[in-house]
């Protein structure tokens, strides 16, 4: 048994998420990961935007900042730049981070600022009732795509990698132990770390797309996610409909607050 109570704001429970929503599973994995890393709660700042996933900070007993829609990374950049000693974790969703907050997403990755981003991908705008999001798959139904989405979805992990993130990974709420491990790696990485977490929405996405029961979504994750090792050995045909999970990208790149500190040092030396 893991004792979550010291880490949560118990009086806020039960949480607001729907029955079977994976966001609570992520929250627990996150708590175990931060506990395992020995992160001091006073020095942790959890920043979120607007949406289902963005309600996460309200349940965690650290410094928590629930910001405006899409802007978590902008606020978090201010926190981290002002106080590089703080451990900054952003919790956001597919709509929050890659639609309304898309600009901050690519630029925080470009700067490679030392922020850990847990991006819960639930394939829909859940909080507002199931509107189509940038990760809704082509053909999926949503309240604003009643005949099926005609748009291709974003590859949000690929986007972060292309923009310059030094660490990119993907996990899911079925493979919970792996998820915990990936969260640890993402937090430990110095630089912009993006962990995309597949946490499909049962209420607003599943029900419209023949996976209305949370168990069906978990089965879907079980059957469609494959490890990186397995993926490498698969043919293109076998890869059809499968989703890679694990560390997708991990490189060393100069980090923003380090670069700023270097600049300060250089100017001092020149003086």
């Amino acid at each position: 048994m893991f004792d979550y109570l010291p880490y949560i704001r118990e009086w806020n429970f039960p949480h607001i998420w729907c029955s079977g929503c994976g966001d609570g599973i992520v929250l627990k994995a996150l708590i175990r990961a931060t506990d395992g890393l020995g992160i001091h709660r006073d020095e942790a700042v959890m920043v979120s935007g607007i949406g289902c996933s963005s309600r996460t900070p309200g349940y965690v007993d650290v410094n928590t900042l629930h910001t405006t829609h899409g802007r978590a990374l902008a606020f978090a950049t201010g926190v981290k730049h002002a106080s590089p000693n703080l451990n900054v974790i952003v919790v956001t969703g597919d709509g929050d981070a890659t639609a309304i907050g898309g600009n901050h997403y690519i630029h925080a990755a470009r700067r490679n600022i030392d922020i850990t981003v847990l991006l819960y991908n639930n394939y829909i705008y859940g909080m507002t009732g199931g509107q189509v999001s940038p990760t809704t798959r082509k053909g999926d139904r949503a309240s604003t795509a009643p005949f099926g989405s005609i748009e291709p979805p974003f590859n949000i992990s690929g986007l972060a990698k292309a923009a310059g993130a030094s660490f990119v990974a993907r996990g899911d709420v079925y493979n919970v132990k792996k998820l915990e491990k990936l969260i640890k790696l993402a937090i430990q990485k110095k630089g912009f770390s993006l962990l995309e977490i597949l946490s499909p929405c049962p209420t607003a996405w599943g029900r419209r797309n023949k996976m209305g029961h949370p168990v069906q979504l978990m089965e879907w994750l079980r059957d469609s996610t494959v490890s990186m090792e397995k993926w490498e050995k698969m043919t293109d045909e076998e890869r059809e409909g499968k989703i890679r999970t694990g560390v997708l990208h991990d490189v060393a790149r100069p980090e923003f607050t380090d670069e700023y500190a270097k600049l300060v040092k250089r100017l001092k030396a020149e003086k």
Partner: peptide, 15 residues
Amino acid sequence: MLCELRCPDFAITVE
């Protein structure tokens, strides 16, 4: 521990 790990609601624990 899989039930505890996967419970989204902090509702089940195994000792």
